[in-house]
C-alpha cells in the first residue's frame, strides 16, 4: 500500500465534499436539511470540511413534525449555534393550522405531513436545492435515486425519468419553480456513518446510546412510552435498557434493547446485527412501496 491511498471513509468523504461544493457552485439559494440525527450530523461535518474557513454558504432547514424526540431538537438547536449557522424551522403544526397539510384520521406517522410542510418552506424561501442525508442502503427506492435528484415544480420524483449521472459530472440546471435534492452521503452505509462519527469524534444525541426507558410492545416493536404513545390497557409495558438505531417519528420509532454506551459499542453491535436499520421503523413496513410513493409525492 503506497502513501497515495485513501481508505473507504476517505473515499466517501472526498466524494461527499465534492458534491457539497458543486451545490455551492451551481445553486443560488441552497439549504441543508438538518434534523439532529446521525446522518445529518455527518452532513454538517462534511459541510465544515467543504467550506471552512468560510461560514457555511447555506442555512440549515428542519421540518419539525411535532413528533420529534425532545433530545433531538435540543441537540439540533445547540449544534446549529455552535456552528454559527442559521437554522430555519418550519413545523407541521403550523402547516396544519394554515391548511397546508391535512392529516387523515388514524394516520400513524407524520411522514406524509412533512411533505407539504417541506414544499411550503422551499417555496417560502425560494430554495433551489436542498441537501439531505439520505443513504441508498436504507431502502429500495432510495437505492435507485441519483446524487442530484431532480424534482419538478410539484416536488415530485420521477424514478423512470432521472437524469443520467456520469463520472462526477452533475447536471444541476433548473427552470423556475423546479428544485434539486442532493444527497452527498448516498453511498454511505449505516456502518460507514458510525465509523465516520467515531473517526471525527462527533457528538450525537444521547438517545443513540443505551439508556433506561419505559417501552410498550406494539406491532412487534418496543415503542417509547410518551404523551403521544400512551400504553393501551392490554399492552405489555416494560422498563428496558434500550437505544434507538434510527430516529423517526416518536410514535413509530422502535427502541432496540442494547448495552451500547459508546460509538465503538455501536459499531460492534451493527457488525453483528441481523436486521437492517429501517427494520425498526413502522412507517416503512406500511407497504413494500411505502418510500417509493412518498418520494414521488415530494418526500426528501
Amino acid at each position: 500500500m503506497n502513501s497515495y491511498h485513501l481508505d473507504h471513509l476517505q473515499h466517501l468523504e472526498t466524494e461527499a465534499i465534492h458534491l457539497m461544493r458543486e451545490v455551492a457552485g451551481e445553486f443560488e439559494r441552497p439549504a441543508l436539511l438538518f434534523s439532529g440525527g446521525k446522518d445529518s450530523i455527518c452532513l454538517l461535518r462534511l459541510a465544515e470540511k467543504a467550506f471552512r474557513p468560510s461560514d457555511l454558504p447555506m442555512p440549515l432547514l428542519n421540518v419539525d413534525t411535532g413528533h420529534h424526540f425532545p433530545e433531538l431538537n435540543e441537540f439540533r438547536d445547540r449544534r446549529a449555534r455552535q456552528l454559527g449557522a442559521k437554522l430555519i424551522i418550519r413545523t407541521v403544526e403550523d402547516a396544519i393550522a394554515q391548511g397546508i397539510a391535512t392529516p387523515s384520521p388514524g394516520e400513524i406517522s407524520r411522514n406524509r405531513l412533512q411533505i407539504p410542510t417541506l414544499l411550503a418552506a422551499i417555496e417560502e424561501f425560494r430554495f433551489d436545492c436542498c441537501i439531505g442525508g439520505a443513504r441508498r442502503d436504507e431502502e429500495k427506492a432510495r437505492a435507485k435515486e441519483r446524487f442530484f435528484s431532480f424534482r419538478d415544480s410539484f416536488g415530485q420524483w420521477d424514478p423512470k425519468n432521472q437524469r443520467p449521472e456520469i463520472w462526477n459530472l452533475y447536471n444541476g440546471r433548473l427552470n423556475p419553480g423546479e428544485n434539486m435534492r442532493v444527497f452527498p452521503i448516498s453511498n454511505w452505509t449505516e456502518m460507514d456513518v458510525w465509523e465516520y462519527i467515531q473517526r471525527e469524534q462527533l457528538e450525537v444525541p444521547a438517545i443513540y446510546f443505551s439508556h433506561r426507558r419505559k417501552c410498550v410492545r406494539r406491532g412487534g416493536q418496543w415503542l417509547p412510552v410518551n404523551a403521544l404513545v400512551p400504553p393501551k390497557p392490554a399492552e405489555e409495558v416494560r422498563d428496558l435498557v434500550v437505544r434507538v438505531r434510527t430516529i423517526g417519528d416518536i410514535i413509530s420509532t422502535g427502541c432496540v434493547e442494547s448495552p451500547a454506551t459508546t460509538t465503538s459499542d455501536i459499531i460492534a453491535e451493527i457488525a453483528a446485527a441481523r436486521v437492517t436499520e429501517r427494520g425498526s421503523r413502522a412507517d416503512d413496513k406500511a407497504s413494500e412501496a411505502a418510500m417509493e410513493d412518498r418520494k414521488k409525492a415530494g418526500y426528501f
Binding site: R136, D137, K140, A141, K144, P159, K160, T189, E288, E292
Partner: peptide, 27 residues
C-alpha cells in the same frame, strides 16, 4: 434489487440500483 413497484410488476429492472456489502477484505 428490483426495488420499484413498476419493476416488480413487469419483472424487469428499469433503472440503476446501488447495493452495498462488505467482506473483511473490501467494501
Amino acid at each position: 434489487t428490483d426495488g420499484l413497484r413498476a419493476e416488480r410488476e413487469q419483472g424487469i429492472t428499469i433503472d440503476v440500483a446501488y447495493r452495498y456489502f462488505a467482506t473483511p477484505r473490501r467494501k
